[in-house]
């Protein structure tokens, strides 16, 4: 229980810090943010109106307190472009990004486990070297290159999937592979490394000695214990996944939060940029805190050690 509370407390501190940084983002705009957002042709009256509605005429501290008060009521402000509440826009865009992230996660797990297990079991063989070379290639190919290449081969030449947009399951395939590749590469190395570690332990020797076949040893005994560090890595990698979604969504015109960030930057709609960054970061912190706690929960050694 004390462990749980201290984890939650440190997550709260981090989220507060994230709020401070995101709040300060708008003050980093070179020159007068209002002028930049409205353009040079704007009327002086319009500028003053926007300045007041954003609270930029107030002292910094009271601006921040108002900001916190609004966030507490889930009021993220109004989009300058569409004049709609930002929270509504985010809710509209969220399902697409979640769908993409989950699909990418699925791709990563489906590729990484067989690859990692094969590499570990056949350690130092050609299979192992091949799998690790594939994984190195996977981390080295950025998704803004992977995306266009997949589009070229599977959409333009072969015509199996749509080039872009979000329309049915077929349109999800290429973005999910694009976003999932880097994670699959990192994950397969992790699966291999933890599995190799576990395979050296005494109880594995015991299991082999009592006559269990190699398949049962791997799947029933080794993999189960190799899973925990892999789950933590999944939590940590989710952040990279969410950030990678920004670029992947831009490549495939996938109408999610990531594309919203880029659109908002291009339109100088900074309140929307702030809100998106806040949403993604807070999600990331929460997921990490949850995996952290789940890890402690599933592994009795950590549960005891942390509480004692």
């Amino acid at each position: 229980m004390p462990l749980l509370i201290s984890r939650l407390a440190s997550a709260a501190v981090v989220i507060f810090g994230v709020l401070v940084l995101v709040f300060l983002l708008i003050h980093l705009v070179p020159g007068d943010p209002v002028e930049v957002m409205l353009g040079e042709s704007a009327q002086a009256a319009d500028r003053e109106a926007l300045r007041q509605s954003l609270g930029l005429d107030q002292p910094l501290l009271s601006q921040f307190i108002t900001y916190l008060g609004n966030i507490a009521q889930f009021d993220l402000g109004t989009s300058l472009h569409s004049k709609r509440p930002i929270s509504d826009i985010l809710l509209e865009r969220l399902p697409a990004t979640l769908e993409l992230a989950l699909a990418a996660l699925l791709v990563a797990v489906l590729v990484a486990f067989p690859l990692g297990v094969m590499a570990a079991v056949k350690k130092d063989s050609a299979w192992d070297h091949g799998a690790m070379a594939v994984s190195l290639l996977g981390v080295s190919i950025p998704n803004f290159l992977m995306g266009p290449i997949l589009i070229l081969v599977f959409a333009v030449w072969l015509g199996w999937f749509p080039v872009s947009g979000r329309d049915g399951l077929a349109s999800l395939v290429l973005p999910a592979i694009t976003l999932g590749t880097a994670m699959a590469a990192i994950l397969s190395r992790m699966v291999r490394a933890t599995l190799l570690e576990v395979l050296g332990e005494d109880y594995i020797r015991t299991a082999r000695a009592k006559g269990l076949g190699p398949g049962a040893v791997i799947w029933r005994h080794a993999l189960r214990n190799a899973l925990l560090p892999v789950i933590t890595l999944l939590g940590l990698q989710l952040g990279a996944l969410l950030a990678g979604a920004v670029i992947t969504e831009a490549v495939f015109s996938w109408p999610g939060i990531g594309q919203l960030v880029i659109e908002a930057i291009q339109r100088r709609d900074y309140p929307v940029v702030q809100a998106c960054v806040l949403l993604i970061s807070v999600t990331y912190v929460l997921v990490n805190t949850l995996t952290d706690m789940a890890y402690g929960w599933f592994d009795p050694r950590i549960r005891m050690g942390g509480a004692g």
Binding site: V13, V18, V20, I26, L238, L241, V277
Partner: peptide
Amino acid sequence: RIIDIFLAFPGILLAIALAGIL
């Protein structure tokens, strides 16, 4: 604490926001 706060921004996201705003 400050390091933890910076790590809370996943990957390149903060850089995207910063570059976009600067």
